[in-house]
Design a protein around this nucleic acid. Sequence first.
DNA 1: AGCAATGCTTGTCCTATGTCAACGTTTTAG
DNA 2: CTAAAACGTTGACATAGGACAAGCATTGCT
Lengths: 177, 177
Amino acid sequence: MEIDSQTLDAVCSYFKPFKAKRNEILLNYNQVSRHYYFINKGSIRLFTNTQEGHEISRYFAFEGNFVTALPSFIDQQPAEEFMQAIESSELLRISREDFYHLVDTMPGFTKIYTEILELGFIVAQKRIYGFQGSDAMQKVRWIIQNQPKILVRVSNKLAASYLGISPSTLSRIKAKL
Amino acid sequence: MEIDSQTLDAVCSYFKPFKAKRNEILLNYNQVSRHYYFINKGSIRLFTNTQEGHEISRYFAFEGNFVTALPSFIDQQPAEEFMQAIESSELLRISREDFYHLVDTMPGFTKIYTEILELGFIVAQKRIYGFQGSDAMQKVRWIIQNQPKILVRVSNKLAASYLGISPSTLSRIKAKL
DNA sequence: AGCAATGCTTGTCCTATGTCAACGTTTTAG
DNA sequence: CTAAAACGTTGACATAGGACAAGCATTGCT
C-alpha cells in the first residue's frame, strides 16, 4: 500500500500523544473502549479475572503494535476486560469517532481496518488450536515458536496467565528446557 | 442495511448449490480454502488434530450460518484444519474470487465482510476468556449459556472435542446437571 | 542507596480429569 | 431389516498440574 506524505500527515494528526505509568489501568472492566492505541514505547496487556479471582491475559502488545479492547471498541458495550500498561509507556491514541471517520473516508484506512480484523481473527484461531488439548510443556513450546517476545518481555506470572498455567508450573517447565 | 431485490438477485446468482454427504470432508488439512459456504440444511464443523491424535473442534455451523476455513480463505495458505459435513447437508457456495469481487464492488457487501470478521473475532475472544482457567463444569455451563445449539445438535463426542474435555468427563458432568 | 514489595523457585500434598475397559444402546448403511 | 459400527455411560486407576508455603532473589519506589 502506498500513502503520500500529505495523507500520512492527515492521518497522524488524529493521533494524540498519551502517557501511561507502569501498572496504570487504561480501561476498566465496565468501561466502554473509546480509543485505539499505538505503542511508541512500553507494553500493554489485556486481561480479565476468572470467577476464582485469577487473572487471564489475552493479549500483549509492544512497541509498534496497535491495541484496544476491540470487542468493546466495535460494539460499544462494556469491555469485560481490563487494559493495563505493563511498563510506563508512551502511546498515541485516536478516538473511535476519528478512527471510523478515517475508515469510512480513506480507502487505504478501510483496508487497514480489515487487515487488523483479519489478523486478529487468525491469531485468535491459532491460539485456540495451539492451546486446546496441549499440556503445559507443549504450550510453552508453542509460545516460544509463535510469540517469543512474550517470554522475553513480561514476567513469568503474566506469561503464565496467558498460557493458562500456574507460575509454578511455568517455572518448573522452563527448568526442564 | 437495505438491499433492493435486484441487487439481492445479483448477489445470489454467485452462490451455487452444493450437496455434501454425512461425514464428507469438504476441505482437507493441506488444502487451500477457495469457497465460502452458506448452510441451507445440515451442519458443518471445523476441526484439527492434536499431536496425540485427538480431534479438536473449533466451530460448528448450522442452518443459516456462513462457514469456511477463514484463515486459509483470507491468506490462501494451507488450511491446517478440516472442514466436514456432520450430517448430509445442502449448501450454497461462492468462490473466493466472486466473494472478493462483491466485497470490492458492492458497498453493502463490504460491510457484510467487515461484520463477519468483527463477529468472528469477538466470538473467538469470548471463547478464549470463557474457557481458559475454567474447569470442566464451568465450560459446560458456559456452552449452555453461549452456544446451546451445540449440545443439542452434535454428539457428545464432538461437543467434548469443542470444550477440550474428554467424552467421559462430559458424560459425567451432564449427569450432575 | 536502601527498604519494601513483588516475583521466582521448589517442596509437599491433593484433586480434577484423562485413560482404558466393559457393557448396553443407538445409529447407520446396505 | 439386520448386522456392524459408533456412541454413551460408568467404574477403577493413574497423573499432570494446581494450591499453598517458605526462602531467596530481584525490582522499583522515594
